[in-house]
Write a protein that binds this DNA or RNA. Structure first.
Lengths: 151, 151
DNA sequence: GCGCTCCTGACCAAAAAGGTCAGGAAAGTC
DNA sequence: GACTTTCCTGACCTTTTTGGTCAGGAGCGC
C-alpha cells in the first residue's frame, strides 16, 4: 500500500509537462525542475509514451509533451502507466478472488479499497494538480486535520 | 499500490480468530481454514502478536486468540502490523514531503489518497468483516457496479 | 554531416516478497 | 520427570521489484 518513487516521479514530470507552454520540453529540464535522476526519468517517460500519455520528438528542439490536454489526463492514468493496475491483491484484481470461510466478505473490502483510491486518483487531472484546484471531494478529504497526522 | 499476500493472509487469519468461539485456535487450523502455508502463517501471527493484536499460548490446548474484542480491531490495525504504514510515498509519510514547482499540490493528493484508504480500512472491524455487515460508507463504495470492473 | 535529444537494452546492487527449515522453549498430560 | 504438543525464533533460500546507471543507436534539425 505504498506509492513507489517511480510513480511519484512520473506524476511530477507529467505535472511539469502539463504546466509547460506549447512545444516540447527536454527531459533534462524536467529532471532539473523536479530533481529526478535524468536517466531514470527517461525510462519513465518512455513508459508514459508507450502508454499514450506523452509524445516525444528527438533532435534539437526535441522533447516531450502531453498527448492529450492536461484536463483529460488523470493521475490514475499516469500511475497505471508505470505501476500497473491499482490495488491488486496478491497480483490479482480483487474482483477475481474468491474467499472462503470467515473471510468471505474480504473481497468487498478490497473492492471498496480500490473504489476509494479511484475516487481520488481518477478525478484529479493534471490540470487540477497544476492549478491547485482539486475536485471538491478530494479537497475535503485533504482538508480534514486528521488526514495530516500519522498513525 | 497493491495489497501483499502477507497482508491478505493476516486479515484472513484474523477473521478466523474473530469468528472463533472462546479459547485458543491452533495455527494449523487457521492455515487450513484459509489455505495459507502454515510456516509462513506462523511468522505472520508472530508479527500480529508483537503488534498486540493477537495473544498466544504454547503446548497442548495452546493456540492464538484476539487480544481485543473483534469489534475493536480494524483491518487497518492488521495491515499496519504486517506491512507498516499505509500509503507512504517513497518510504516517507506524505505529510513530511515537500514538492517543488508545478508538483506543489501533489502532497495534498497523496494525503487525500491516504485519507480515502483510511475511511475504508479504519472503519471496517473484524466483527464487521465476519458478519458481512460493513459500515454504510464502505458498503456503498462496494455497491457501485463500476467498482467491480477492471480498468 | 554534425550536434542534439530521445530510445533501448543490458546491467547492477539492494531490498522486498514469499516462502522453507531446523531447532528451542513453554505448556499441558501421563 | 518424560513426552507430546504447539508456539517462537532465527537462518536461509529463490524470485521479483525497486531504483537506479551505462553504453550505444536512431531520428531530427540545421
Amino acid at each position: 500500500m505504498r506509492v513507489s518513487a517511480k510513480a511519484d516521479y512520473a506524476v511530477r514530470a507529467a505535472a511539469e509537462l502539463a504546466a509547460a507552454e506549447e512545444g516540447p520540453v527536454k527531459g533534462e529540464k524536467l529532471a532539473e525542475a523536479q530533481d529526478i535522476p535524468l536517466q531514470f526519468l527517461e525510462h519513465i517517460l518512455l513508459e508514459l509514451k508507450h502508454a499514450g500519455i506523452v509524445r516525444a520528438r528527438r533532435g534539437a528542439k526535441g522533447g516531450y509533451w502531453l498527448a492529450r490536454p492536461a484536463e483529460e489526463v488523470t493521475i490514475a492514468d499516469v500511475v497505471r502507466a508505470v505501476e500497473g493496475p491499482i490495488a491488486h491483491v496478491q497480483s490479482s484484481p480483487p474482483e477475481s478472488i474468491e474467499y472462503r470461510g470467515n473471510a468471505e466478505h474480504l473481497q468487498e473490502v478490497w473492492i471498496a479499497v480500490r473504489a476509494s483510491l479511484r475516487t481520488v486518483l481518477e478525478h484529479v487531472t493534471l490540470a487540477d494538480l497544476v492549478s491547485g484546484q482539486l475536485p471538491s471531494e478530494v479537497e475535503s478529504l485533504a482538508a480534514q486535520p486528521d488526514a495530516w497526522v500519522a498513525r
